[in-house]
Design a protein around this nucleic acid. Structure first.
Lengths: 201, 201
DNA sequence: AACGTAACACTAACGGTTAGTGTTTCGGAA
DNA sequence: TTCCGAAACACTAACCGTTAGTGTTACGTT
């Protein structure tokens, strides 16, 4: 992770990035559906199979930073200030992520996503993966042996918050609104004794 | 809807049912991935295109009663007893739906679904559609002009409840647990004045 | 310098899905 | 009753995402 990467890994990363950039450019130019994998491969000057060795599917070309988002959610919990409840930390992170999505530079991408059923579906399944990771992280943070139903529900609610806010007219307000609901839900769920305003979670 | 259906419509429904039954039988026999659309079409004695004129995708063959489930959710709200809050009604309905999924006769189907990523993804996107319909129904029930963020969040939470409970060790308890969270979330969301125990919602 | 491995290329195919083009069958209007 | 239009259905042929199989390079390592 911290060792200097060799030429091989640099080349691999470069190829991956070239493919992703090419794909995104073509998608935005001609439309997602109008561009085939063969087009992307030709334009990036690689073989079709090489595309699929770097990306699991055509949709994954668009959500290139998938894992970054997942890590951000998990780290918002694990790396938060000591004694801070995790929900406010999550709220901040979700708000930042939504802001990033609705920013001017990313807006064309998300307009494309909204226009394509396949991409929307992929986005949702991605979000579910993130929610599962978040549930695991929260359960671990609480010292639970396994991810309880309450943890998983809360994590899904957070994912829902992201999805709803991204589409809302006023994303910031939507995040706050849904997170108020989530905080109440979490308070109602936990048999952990302490109310949400105090330490422990 | 209530007029006696003509021969044409009966034939169409019969063909649809024959295709669905054949598909499900083959899927359970040989496995979802091992059965192709061409196999289903041949066994049901129809053309491949006919299959796709009745079902939008291969996955839709498995979730044949998709719209039934959607209607049940919506009707749980619209047809509930007067003055009853809608959340308890929804909870009953979700509990019944989960019971039906985990029943002995339906169990093989859901085992197949759990084994196939494609089917799981389809199930989730189906659930999102149901959630949207539910959000619209609830907004209408509350006399709102449009589906607010709170309504949509709550509807997604209900969908999450279904998803989580279906996979939980103890489905009934899981439904109760998540619905306790949802009731608290809803109470926190609404600026409607009345608490959840009273009339109005 | 030689070896093992991982990235990449190429062909060919598989399977879901659709377009295009008829053909039959039925319900309703004339 | 007769005819017309629409809808169900069939058939071919493809498109496109995806993968298996098989090499071929290029790199890190010993």
């Amino acid at each position: 992770m911290t060792v200097p990467p060799g030429r091989r890994e640099r080349k691999k990363a470069a190829t991956r990035q070239r493919i992703a950039d090419t794909a995104l450019r073509l998608f935005l130019d001609r439309g997602y559906d109008a561009v085939g994998i063969r087009d992307v491969a030709a334009e990036a000057d690689v073989a079709v199979t090489t595309v699929f060795s770097h990306f699991a599917s055509k949709e994954a070309l668009v959500f290139e930073q998938d894992e970054d988002f997942e890590q951000r959610l998990v780290r918002a919990v694990t790396d938060r200030a000591p004694h801070e409840p995790f929900l406010p930390a999550l709220r901040r992170e979700v708000r930042a992520m939504v802001r990033h999505c609705t920013g001017d530079d990313a807006a064309p991408i998300w307009r494309m996503v909204d226009a394509s059923p396949a991409l929307r579906q992929y986005e949702e399944s991605m979000r579910l993966r993130h929610a599962e990771s978040l549930a695991v992280a929260v359960a671990a943070d609480l010292g639970l042996a396994r991810t309880t139903t309450a943890c998983r529900a809360m994590a899904r609610f957070v994912a829902d918050a992201h999805a709803l806010a991204r589409e809302a007219d006023d994303p910031d307000t939507a995040v706050d609104e849904v997170f108020r609901m989530i905080e109440a839900a979490w308070d109602a769920a936990r048999p952990f004794g302490a109310p949400s305003g105090t330490a422990g979670s």
